[in-house]
C-alpha cells in the first residue's frame, strides 16, 4: 500500500472482517453486516497494525499455478511424512539449511515461510528478517544432494509466490536468478 492512500488498506481490512463475521454466522443479513461493521471498526481502532508494504500486483494465472502446485505439494508432503512415521528400523536424519530469499520483503518472507511450513517436510526454525534468510529444518535428509534439492525447492516456491504477487521488478529478480543457476549447472 506504499504508493496508494493508506485508507485503501483500512477499507480492505473492514471488508475482510465483515465477510468473516458473516461467514461465522453462516448467512448474510443486514443485522450481520451492521454488527460486522461495528466489530471491524472496534478491531481496527483497538488493534492498529502497521501497513503492509505491497508494491506488486496479483496475477490470476500464476496464482492459480501456485495454488495447484501447493495442493500437490501438500498431498505428497503428507504421504512422505506419513511414510517416515510408519517405517521401522531407521531414525530419520534431518538438517537445518539457510535459504537466502531473492526478494527479502516482509510480505514475501511471510508468504514463503507460511507456504513452506505447510508443505514437504520443512519447518522454519529461525528467520533473519534483515538479511531475508529463512533457516529451514528439513526432515529425512540422507546426503548432501538431498540438502541441495531442498534448497532448490524452497527457491522454486519463492519464485512461484513472487510471480503471483510481486512487482515486475521482483519477478525479473527471481527469473534472472533461476536462469543464472541453470547456466551454472
Amino acid at each position: 500500500m506504499s504508493s496508494r492512500a493508506p485508507w485503501r488498506g483500512q477499507l480492505g481490512a473492514v471488508v475482510w472482517l465483515v465477510l468473516i463475521w458473516n461467514l461465522l454466522f453462516g448467512e448474510f443479513t443486514v443485522g450481520n453486516v451492521l454488527g460486522g461493521l461495528a466489530v471491524a471498526a472496534l478491531v481496527l481502532v483497538v488493534f492498529p497494525l502497521p501497513a503492509v508494504a505491497f508494491s506488486g500486483r496479483l496475477r490470476p494465472l500464476p496464482l492459480l499455478r501456485f495454488a495447484a502446485r501447493f495442493v500437490v505439494d501438500l498431498v505428497s508432503a503428507s504421504a512422505q511424512v506419513a511414510w517416515s512415521a510408519l517405517r521401522f528400523g531407521r531414525e530419520p536424519r534431518s538438517a537445518v539449511i539457510a535459504v537466502p530469499l531473492r526478494v527479502p520483503t516482509d510480505l514475501n518472507l511471510t508468504l514463503t515461510a507460511e507456504a513452506l511450513s505447510l508443505v514437504p517436510g520443512s519447518l522454519i526454525v529461525e528467520v533473519d528478517r534483515e538479511a531475508g534468510t529463512l533457516y529451514v529444518h528439513v526432515l529425512d535428509v540422507r546426503a548432501r544432494a538431498d540438502v541441495e534439492r531442498a534448497r532448490a525447492q524452497v527457491l522454486a516456491l519463492e519464485a512461484r509466490i513472487v510471480r503471483a504477487t510481486g512487482s515486475a521488478e521482483e519477478v525479473r529478480l527471481v527469473q534472472a536468478a533461476s536462469t543464472d543457476r541453470g547456466v551454472a549447472r
Binding site: R93, S94, E114, S117, L118, V125, V141
Partner: peptide, 28 residues
Amino acid sequence: APVAAHMVGRAAYRSELVRRDLLLLDEA
C-alpha cells in the same frame, strides 16, 4: 498451523532441545 509449528520449533532450537547427532548439517 505454520505459526504454531514455527514458535514451538524455534523455542526448541534456541533452548538446545535438538538432537545434534541426527542433524546432517546445521547452517543456522
